[in-house]
């Protein structure tokens, strides 16, 4: 199964706004994507509760996995998102 491992660049980790941006992007993908920390259980990336409960801090490496059509494109998009410091970016609509 295609996977990507990436260190979370957001200063506050995957909480609040960075988590919201990530979960929304994951929900927008055509293929369901799962996320895990190390060898931990993989949880749906489109679930805010599941993603928050991972307690991912700044710099923590997470692994994204997906299967099926468009899996690689979905993983690339989400991995690129996590590699950005989402805290430092102003909301586009504010």
């Amino acid at each position: 199964m295609p996977t990507r491992t990436v260190a979370v660049a957001a200063r506050t980790g995957l909480h609040a706004r960075p988590a919201a941006l990530f979960v929304k992007a994951a929900a927008d993908q055509e293929t369901p994507v799962r996320i895990r920390v190390g060898d931990g259980p993989a949880v749906p990336a489109a679930s805010m509760l599941a993603v928050l409960s991972l307690g991912v801090g700044h710099g923590t490496e997470v692994t994204l996995e997906a299967d099926g059509p468009g899996a690689d494109a979905a993983l690339d998009a989400l991995a690129a998102l996590l590699a950005r410091d989402l805290d430092a970016e102003e909301p586009a609509d504010a």
């Binding site: 609040a16 706004r17 805010m48």
Partner: peptide
Amino acid sequence: SAQAMIAADPTL
């Protein structure tokens, strides 16, 4: 906005 996304969470 994060709260709203939790309310919409499929696991709920």
